[in-house]
Simulated assay, not measured.
Amino acid sequence: MAVNRRKGMIIGGVVAGIVVVVVAAVSAGILDGLLKKSPAEYAKAAGVVETADAVKIPLKALDSGKALFLSLESEGRQLYYFALKSRDGAYRAALDACDVCYRTNRGYRQEGDLSVCNKCGQTFPSNRIGEIKGGCNPHPLARAVEGGYLVIRKAAIAEREDYFVRKRS
């Protein structure tokens, strides 16, 4: 009987240890890569509508201030971009690439009110996104608010397709 109790305590301790490790990994963001949706899944969940010449993002999908990372296929390349509502209330959009680090295809991530370059670590406050061009700033995209949507012309995204690697056939 004592042996079974000891085995139970050991197994219970191992399970508790695994739970602690998983909880710590989730809070540290280590498992984020496994839990993230693709840009297409985020677009669908957010209600993004693509027309022949534009991408229409519902403003309500951006109202939280959380960046919505999206992609568009153009002439054999996957083009990445993002949109957000900045802390000053403006709706903004930029390529998920910059003039300096784009060759690494690493883009940006959002940490609170900042966009952070995944290559060099430079940070950019949300109210500068889509306004400042050059250096490691996210490359701005022209956009307009029409009705309840932030509208980005596909041509505006595609004109910088050179920032993204062509798919291999």
Rank of each mutant, 00 (worst) to 15 (best):
D162N: 09
H139G: 03
C98M: 10
T51K: 01
E75K: 15
A52V: 11
A24V: 14
T104P: 12
H139N: 04
F69R: 01
A83H: 09
L31G: 03
L79E: 10
R103V: 04
K37Y: 05
K154S: 09
C101N: 11
C136W: 11
N105G: 10
L84H: 05
Y81D: 02
A28Q: 11
A94W: 00
Y102T: 04
P140C: 15
K7T: 12
L35W: 10
D63N: 08
I18R: 14
E146G: 00
P138K: 05
D113N: 14
C98D: 13
D63Q: 03
V20T: 07
K154V: 12
G130Y: 00
V145Q: 12
F164P: 07
L70H: 02
K60S: 13
I132S: 03
V3E: 10
V22E: 10
R77A: 00
M1L: 00
A94V: 03
F164R: 03
N127M: 04
K85N: 02
S64P: 06
Y42T: 11
E159R: 14
G148R: 04
V48L: 02
T104L: 11
Y81C: 13
N127P: 00
R128C: 11
A90T: 11
G148Y: 08
F124I: 08
G13E: 02
I30A: 13
M1I: 14
T104W: 12
L70M: 12
V20M: 13
Y91A: 06
V22R: 00
K7I: 15
G130A: 10
S64A: 12
T123H: 01
G33K: 09
R77P: 02
V20H: 03
L95F: 06
K119N: 13
V145S: 08
C117I: 01
D88Q: 08
A40Q: 15
S71A: 15
D63G: 03
I129F: 03
Q78V: 06
L35N: 08
A67K: 02
G33N: 04
L79V: 07
G147P: 06
R128A: 12
I10K: 07
L31F: 09
V116Q: 01
Y80F: 08
C101M: 13
A93S: 04
L114V: 05
G121C: 05
V100F: 14
D96I: 10
A28D: 07
R77H: 10
F69Q: 04
V26G: 05
S126K: 00
V145K: 12
V26T: 08
E159N: 06
N118I: 05
N118Q: 05
V21P: 00
G13R: 11
S71Q: 05
I129C: 04
V14M: 15
L70C: 13
G148S: 09
